[in-house]
Amino acid sequence: MIKFSPRLTQKLAWGFTWAMGSVAVLIMLLIVGYVLVQGLPVINLDFLFSSPEGGLAGEGGIFSCIVATLWLIVTTMAILVPLGLGAAIYLSEYAPDNKLTHFIRYSVELLAGIPSIVFGMFGFAVFVLALHFNYSILAGALTLACLLLPFLVRSAEEAMKAVPSSQREAAMALGATRWQTVTRVVIPAALPGITTGIILCVGGAVAESACLYVTMGGSAGMPTSLLSGGRTLAVHVFYLAMETNALDKAMATGAVLIVIIIAINLITRWVSRYLQTRMKGGTSYGV
């Protein structure tokens, strides 16, 4: 084997890491760029505000899909946020260091790894069939809440754990109960992390398709209640791509999704930066 001088080796290694870094960024640019270039020209007001008409040509727009996605996000968050925050509060503030806590933490980790389609199977049999929610937004939202729960618990718990214990002790010393300490000291201080976690879960809900494909049905009609079926934007991309000739519309829907995801990324950055500067600015919270 040829032995290079350390400096040459370093040069080669630098070349390699620069290449890898550029390739990764390039891949992102290619994918995002391709979808946007192909998709954006198709998008117009008519596309955004008319509903899919079905059929092979994939006529119509995506309005009912946008509405279904919004319904789904609101419902999912209504279930997920209290549950996830509650669990995070327990793990971070109340849980004693014992077997049960280890068990809970371990199950959160394991739950996070279970494939979405397995949640889908579960949701299909329990929410769709056994509980008679039928193919519906409610069934989809419940399934999705189970799927996203570990992610929210993890990020919220991390954010709360990062709050210095001196702040809790100060509150307790002033005579606050545990719960008052949590709601008035810990949560406000952990707000940037918690908010970021929630927004990322919204992103996850927008992007998810597998578990919704089997729990919400494919009906592209306008949802009228939580019990009506629906087709989210991501699932609509799947339908358009697999069942119609309208690849341009699939790209356009994909472009809408990518714009939403980019927006969510930017908002997350902005929120955490804004709330952090506010915190550093020494504003007092809540009390």
Binding site: I31, A234, V237, A241, M251, L257, I261
Partner: peptide, 17 residues
């Protein structure tokens, strides 16, 4: 952040491309 953007892109979009 450019690379992290790849996490959020829906899997159906990857499938489509």
């Amino acid at each position: 952040p450019a690379i992290e953007l790849l996490v959020g892109i829906p899997s159906v979009v990857y499938g489509l491309v």
